[in-house]
Computed example of a mutant assay.
Amino acid sequence: MLPAEAGPNAAFYVVLNAGSGHSETALRESTIRDVLGDAGRTCHLEIVDDPAKLCDIARRMATQAKENGGVVVAAGGDGTINTVAHEAVRQGCLFGVLPQGTFNYFGRTHGIPEELDEAVRALLDARVTPVQIGMVNDRIFLVNASVGLYPQLLEAREEDKRQYGRSRIVAILSALKTTLGRYRPLRIAMDAEGITRKLRTPTLFVGNNRLQMEQVGMEPMSVALEEGELAAIAPRQVGKLGMLGLLLRGALGRLGDADNLVAFSFKRLSVKHAALSPRRRIKVATDGEVTHMRMPLEFRVVEGRLMLLKPAAAPDAGADAKA
């Protein structure tokens, strides 16, 4: 059974992504410890300085949080938040977030402050809120999952960020560079609740975040998320200029006006190759982290499994159970 609330003396088990520099990480660590210490709360904190260790550290901290009635907390970007949330769901413990990424869609959707000291203070009087998650095969996603061009874009963006720094401008320019490059279109068959769609597309994007849908101009999909579904978006095969046009529409919040776009909502979706293909595995991005998965891909929505500490002052717009 999942916990209904965090006790006033519940300990916090914080998984802190080391980020880009030692001094910045040290400042974040001291901020977290100082705010929680001043409030008289116990803080167990581990710094992840090697991405390969993130899963093991998240699993260990979530296990300790479950055993001791505490809260496991992810301090980092969407990828870190995803990994720690996965272990929180597995262990059935409470989950907190200290957003430290570029876009912070998950944190912003739930009213979690982006300033670290404010986010830590928000944990102290937060209310427990069940949050909808998406799953693709055995992996969860809080914001989105995708195949095709989008995972390539993410890999290129991470490489560019390592060279030029983490900023939204770098992310946008990297996306333009990848879109103008070479990529192989997908030929897929999608089955959602008995309806089959065959499509040749550069990318399939599955969304689970209201704010992201609203920002690109897909308001109907935002409504679907509020009603406990996921949103599938895939452009029909277009040239590079057509893809640039779609990127521009998304940046301007007008993607929903495009006439070369397939978009629908669902609770379960199966995706397989439309024809015989030598590729049995495919790159899948979940909240910015790229892995390989076996086809077919099975997407589904799962409600109420992630118990999030949401700031008490956050507005309640009917999205409490949605990511």
Score class of each variant (00 low, 15 high):
Leu2Pro: 01
Leu2Glu: 00
Pro3Leu: 10
Pro3His: 06
Glu5Met: 14
Gly7Val: 00
Asn9Ile: 00
Asn9Gly: 13
Ala10Phe: 03
Ala10Lys: 13
Tyr13Ile: 04
Ala18Glu: 01
Leu27Phe: 06
Thr31Cys: 13
Ile32Pro: 04
Asp38Gly: 05
Gly40Gln: 06
Val48Trp: 00
Cys55Gln: 13
Ile57Pro: 02
Arg59Ile: 04
Arg59Tyr: 03
Met61Arg: 14
Met61His: 14
Thr63Lys: 15
Ala65Tyr: 03
Lys66Leu: 08
Val72Met: 08
Asp78Pro: 03
Ile81Asn: 09
Ile81Arg: 11
Ile81Leu: 12
His86Asp: 13
Ala88Lys: 02
Ala88Ile: 00
Gly92His: 09
Gly92Trp: 02
Gly92Asn: 07
Val97His: 05
Gly101Phe: 03
Phe106Ser: 11
Thr109Cys: 14
Arg121Asn: 12
Ala122His: 05
Leu123Arg: 11
Ala126Arg: 07
Arg127Cys: 05
Thr129Glu: 10
Val131Asn: 11
Ile133Arg: 13
Gly134Val: 04
Asp138Arg: 14
Phe141Thr: 07
Ala145Met: 03
Gly148Ala: 12
Leu149Ser: 11
Tyr150Pro: 01
Tyr150Ile: 08
Leu154Gly: 07
Glu155Lys: 14
Glu155Trp: 00
Ala156Tyr: 01
Ala156Phe: 01
Ala156Thr: 05
Arg157Tyr: 03
Glu158Met: 06
Asp160Cys: 13
Arg162Tyr: 02
Tyr164Phe: 10
Gly165Leu: 02
Val170Ile: 15
Val170Gly: 15
Ser174Pro: 04
Ser174Val: 03
Ala175Gly: 14
Lys177Thr: 02
Thr179Ile: 08
Pro185Gln: 04
Gly194Leu: 10
Arg200Gly: 05
Asn209Ala: 14
Asn209Tyr: 02
Arg210Thr: 10
Met213Cys: 14
Met213Gln: 08
Glu214Arg: 15
Pro220Ala: 14
Ser222Thr: 09
Val223Asn: 11
Val223Leu: 12
Glu226Ala: 15
Gly228Trp: 01
Leu230Lys: 12
Ala234Leu: 08
Arg236Trp: 00
Gln237Leu: 15
Gly245Ser: 15
Leu248Arg: 12
Gly250Asp: 08
Gly250Trp: 09
Leu252Ile: 04
Arg254Met: 10
Gly256Phe: 11
Ala258Lys: 08
Leu261Asn: 06
Ala263Arg: 06
Lys267Met: 03
Ser270Pro: 05
Ser270Cys: 11
Ile282Cys: 13
Val284Asp: 00
Thr286Asn: 13
Asp287Leu: 05
Glu289Ser: 11
Arg294Thr: 07
Pro296Tyr: 06
Leu297Ala: 12
Leu297Gln: 03
Phe299Met: 08
Arg300Leu: 06
Glu303Ser: 15
Leu309Asn: 04
Ala312Lys: 13
Ala314Val: 01
Gly318Trp: 00
Gly318Cys: 03
Ala321Asp: 09
Lys322His: 13
